[in-house]
Design a protein around this nucleic acid. Structure first.
Lengths: 133, 133
DNA sequence: AATAATATTAGTTATTATTATTGTTTTTAT
DNA sequence: ATAAAAACAATAATAATAACTAATATTATT
């Protein structure tokens, strides 16, 4: 994955715009379907290449919940994620009072920290109401 | 993935023992190779099925770093992970002073929290020494 | 202990997500 | 305007995981 890409590309622009304009945390394929409406002959490989590029450059976030598929998030603001173990929905956790100190981690591990990911899993209110599935 | 499995299985036992006895965060395939030394004709599917079973029951942890491969951890104690963006190694972050309050998240989101995952990424000391790759 | 019921298995095939390749087109620098 | 490099679409290849099936191992029942 050697990406020294610097040129403008309409495809990348649109991918980024679509990702930024959604509140969900889409997969590459979801984005692909959206972009196709604007660029019908775009290829899935282009979507993957650009998502990886953008993630490597820190323009978007890439994560996964231990599952088999990567998901992307165009929102770079400090926030966390939570997923329902039953319905699999993913939501943002806007902010928590606790500040996690990256500096502490840096001095603890010697790493230069680039990013921090915090996610929770559990049962969402709706599924709780519906009871045991 | 409906796993109402209750019977004893030697395969599962050995998988769990191997996972618990390593400090690394192996993939299904890594575990498969290990188990084969004890049960030469075990199948990879069995390894996957049991890892998923154990993870669903909360006996082990399953995660991934946004990549394509799941990794497993037999250590259930409270700890976090850090990965080097260059050499891809994953290490434990033993404990941090900040306590993240799941109760705060529960009242903030309405979710019943099952688990919390915190991971960092950055550049490990060794790669820092080696400089830009 | 023998039997019946069923979870689990090995072996295999299928599916899905992702990456790599190749020849062509776009973009940028000169 | 032209040349070099980046990015592309199309497609093939790979890798991870899930699904299927008939046989085996484990447990519960007699």
């Amino acid at each position: 994955m050697d990406l020294k890409i610097t040129k403008y590309s309409r495809q990348r622009d649109i991918i980024l715009r679509i990702l930024r304009s959604t509140k969900c945390h889409p997969t590459a394929d979801w984005i692909y379907e959206k972009v196709k409406k604007e660029i019908p002959n775009i290829s899935l490989g282009t979507v993957y290449r650009n998502l990886n590029f953008l993630a490597d450059k820190g323009k978007i976030r890439r994560f996964s919940f231990g599952g088999t598929t990567a998901q992307f998030d165009g929102d770079l603001r400090d926030h966390y994620h939570i997923r329902c173990d039953w319905c699999k929905r993913i939501e943002d956790v806007p902010h928590i009072s606790t500040r996690i100190s990256c500096q502490e981690i840096e001095s603890l591990t010697g790493y230069r920290i680039h990013s921090l990911n915090l996610f929770f899993s559990g049962i969402c209110p709706e599924c709780q109401r519906k009871g045991e599935q």
